[in-house]
Design a protein around this nucleic acid. Sequence first.
RNA 1: GCCGGAGUAGCUCAGCUGGUAGAGCGCCUGUCUUGUAAACAGGGGGUCAGGGGUUCGAGUCCCCUCUCCGGCUCCA
Length: 663
Amino acid sequence: MAIHVTLPDGNQLELPEGATGADAAAAIGPGLARAALAIEVSHPEAGEGPEVRDLARPLPDGAHVSILTSRSGEAALALIRHDAAHVLAAAVMELYPGVKISIGPAIEDGFYYDFEFPAGTSISEAEFPAIEERMRAHVKAAETFEREDVAPAQARERFLAEGQDYKVELIDDLVAAASAEDPLQTVSLYTNGPFTDLCRGPHAPSTSTVSAFKLRSVAGAYWRGDSDRTMLTRIYGTAFFSKSDLAEHLERIEQAKERDHRKLGRELGLFTFSDVSPGAAFWLPAGTGVFNALVAMSRRMGAERGYSEVKTPQIFDAELWRTSGHWGKYRENMFTLTVEEREMAVKPMNCPGHCQLFASTRHSYRDLPLRYSEPGLLHRNEPSGVLHGLLRVRHFAQDDGHIFCTEEQVQDEVRGCLEMAFATYAMFDFDVRLELSTRPEQRIGDDELWDRAERKLTEALAEAGLEYDLNPGDGAFYGPKIDMHMTDSLGRSWQLGTVQLDYQMPARFGLQYTGADNHEHTPVMIHRAMFGSYERFIGILLEHYGGELPLWLAPVQAIVLPVSDRFAGYAQTVCEQLSDGSVRTEVDARSESVGRKIRDAELRKIPYMLVVGEREQAENAVSVRARPAVAAEREGASGNGSGPAQDGAIPLAEFIRDVRGQL
RNA sequence: GCCGGAGUAGCUCAGCUGGUAGAGCGCCUGUCUUGUAAACAGGGGGUCAGGGGUUCGAGUCCCCUCUCCGGCUCCA
């Protein structure tokens, strides 16, 4: 009997019955046989989707197969990273007798393994060299990964005897998860050298492929992600097929550190942090300038779209938060205080204040939609461990807005929010990805209401012709939402704006409007933000642009550099004329060399450097040096793609006109 | 909040097993009067995160607190 499998090019391969992936590779060619790591098998007729399997497993007749080698991209990398996790566990078990192992998967960019070390043993990066040395020994030994399928009870007994409680729990859960009609027959064990692990697989034939690896960091991680359970020690590492790929990856990480917004914020003099107010940025003048430029943009765009800016208090009686529902669900994250025996809280969001505003007067359906905006200052008492630069703070400002409208208006309003969001993001070169989050398990309101709300969001997305990912169950407890995520220049994803439908809060606050039927109705509330928080958005922008902000956002847009003290007067004139033309300009009047002034301006990433001396003064001109990104944008610039663009002296009036055209 | 690590001048960091705190850059002053990424010289600057302890003596060892960093959990 022979079996037939189909190769990716459509050709059929005939193999003896019982042939394995390795046999298939060998049948195709000896080179491939050597390079093969695993095999992707799918069996469309049997309804079996693609699955990566060990080369040693027999192939089913009629399958479609594809051999994985080091050139198979992410799937192959994930395979050897998982191998590396086993090698790590093997090394750790040898070095630390009594250690308990839990799980060790491949992840994006690498792998980890979670351990419970014996009491009194703690691991730090100082131990990495010793662990890596043991790992290298296992790799050098080219230990084969042997798969064994055994009865769950047998595996359980084995791990129980070894004191591997986490493995026992995993087996128990696997057994429990299987149905009574279809009980779990076997679990698979993989052994490399002295180490055996409960593992679904697959693995490469041997540890020898894991040649370029590095342990990266150590961290705590809760067993099964549950904060009520044991904190395990997680060791992170990464692995590649070649030393050069590894080196390149480590280099990228170093470059990312250079773009860290916390570092850039300090270097560019934008903001600072202090022990006296953890989780809150102190904005320096330059950073405040960036902040205000964004606020101005938000105000302008809001005004163009029928928003009315409002201002509401920072501190409210607890009663308001009881009404909104925050007191019950969110109290731990609010800053509370007692004022003359009244319990009060600093606002963590603006919506209840806006509801209060709405309730302050009577409304007719003719007033709707009513769109309030407020760059509101918020405080949220985030747990200390989660604070992170500008990206996770306790004090921040939101470009917040709330729309009160009739149910019939919801769809148009949601579409309007999406339009505003895309108009906002168009100012930056982001790729924006949308996510629709639907009803969570914990929710208020009946299902009919949720059906309607979700349908309205879906239809608004469809009308706007937007693609989106569905995120079932991730909506807010009061309504479904559309979240907007961006991918930055380093490929990381960040959540920015949000559009949330809320049928609950208006009802809780007893908000009403008089309809055309002369009856009272409850409005629908839409919560929306484009930036999310200004702090977070600026942090993301800094990392995205590596600190080189677009011209219109740069705190200082041009700096005038007189070549000597004699031209300070002319420099001042140039500065004033630019400032009059709304270009944020400074003069570097220090008695320093031009080279020095250029260097300092470059380090501050100031878009335009204007050198002025004898010739410029005589001709009422400036010599322009521009940072590459800005030069590329500016018409007529002589930038050659790399390096700074330098024009000869051009008339000051012409420069001002050009720059204003760019703003 | 949890696990681990760290905190020395404005910044980046050095300071071996305990013996009265150092560099570079920045800053200030003076000289230089500068043509596209760092002129030269001199000077000021630190309760070594804060508090407690051990010791004849603590930046260094121990304990507590705070903050930061890397993760985990969380982000309604």
